Computed example of a mutant assay.
Amino acid sequence: MGYTRKAWTLAVAAGVLMMSTASPAFAADCKVGISIKQLNAPYFAELMESAKKAAKAKGCKVLTADAQGKVMKQIADIEDMLSRDIDLLIMDPAGPDGLVQVTREAAQNGVKTVVLDSSINEAAKYVTVVQSNNKKNGELVGQWIVDKMGGKPLRIALISGAKGNPVGRVRRESVLSGIAKAQKQKYGEKNYTIVGHGWGNWTQQGGLNAMEDILTASKNINLLVSENDSMALGARRAIKAQGLTDQITIAAAADGQKQALKLIKEGKYGVTGLNAPDLIANTGVDIGIKAINGKLPEDFPKITYTPPVAITKSNVDKYYNPNSAF
């Protein structure tokens, strides 16, 4: 069955691409290599675990590697996987440009590549990138912020993941764009200031450190915007230590981490964007298996989005699972 880009996005939203229990005809001979850029945050650990489970459920042998945030290590890991005759590479790249050549090497060896979560240079050879709709999620989060905080001037502490990361850039720009658009529509003008900007490397400890530095420079802040939940959760510890929990609203562009959702339920955390690692991993493996079986349309889109959602207290019960690994 062929899909247009729009129809394919709707198919993902409807669950059409979720894993089936049926295995491909040659599944017993299938070997999947999974390379994740780092496993030092719950999101990436769950992305790896979900991808492993999905591939094994398809009857495939699985090789895994943690790039530890290092492009050169990830290249070496993937080259080792290629030498061990994998059929499918599932990759969360440590950088958008450094992995281009190794995807070409994979293609030359008949190996299909599916990219998860992060973006990659379009010069790479890959089937598709599977990720949450960071732009739409960010805009929804920005709109919620203005609905929640009204017309007051926003003084923002901004915490980003890693310098040069394209997904992080889209997340922060989209939240700020959503804020500006909503403010102009409701109040006639943009009214926010970035008081401080820190880099948290996607982790709770990084978020804590970044927020401590920002608060040392200025406590005149009423909004935290973080590019993921882990950093926001770390930053919240710094906010709590300074006695500023009633003053500062917490907003994350992504992920829907269990700890964050619990705090949303309790009214202690404002909003986050849906970026479910299990949905992304399952979808990516399913697409990859279809690719190595020759069952994808020729015009298959180069990016596959999961549905955009801003998770707030009004809808958190749909997404909170206290037994989730993430």
Results as ranks from 00 to 15, higher is better:
Thr249Cys: 01
His197Ala: 14
Val225Ala: 00
Ala252Thr: 12
Asp29Tyr: 14
Gly59Met: 03
Ile221Tyr: 01
Lys125Gly: 01
Ile303Pro: 04
Ser160Gly: 09
Leu88Phe: 14
Asp299Pro: 05
Arg104Lys: 15
Phe326Asp: 04
Gly256Leu: 04
Lys181Leu: 09
Gly243Tyr: 02
Val175Gln: 08
Leu279Tyr: 01
Gly110Phe: 06
Ala45Trp: 03
Val115Leu: 02
Leu154Ser: 03
Asn323Leu: 11
Asp299Arg: 08
Gly138Tyr: 08
Ile248Cys: 09
Gly294Met: 12
Asn109Lys: 15
Met48Ile: 07
Tyr269Gly: 00
Val62Ile: 13
Lys190Gly: 02
Gly69Trp: 09
Gln38Ser: 11
Met1Ile: 14
Ile34Gln: 05
Thr272Asp: 12
Gln257Pro: 03
Met18Asn: 13
Asn275Gln: 04
Asp80Leu: 02
Met231Val: 15
Gly256Met: 12
Ile156Leu: 02
Glu49Asp: 13
Ile280Gly: 00
Met91Ala: 04
Gly151Lys: 14
Asp246Gly: 15
Arg155Val: 02
Gln74Glu: 10
Ala54Tyr: 08
Leu47Asp: 11
Val16Asp: 12
Gln108Thr: 11
Gln185Val: 11
Val111Thr: 05
Tyr192Pro: 03
Gly142Asn: 06
Glu266Tyr: 11
Thr128Gly: 05
Asn40Ala: 08
Tyr269Thr: 03
Val175Pro: 04
Val127Gln: 08
Ser177Tyr: 10
Asn121His: 15
Glu173Met: 10
Asn282Arg: 14
Val167Arg: 00
Glu298Ile: 14
Lys61Phe: 04
Gln204Asn: 10
Met231Asp: 09
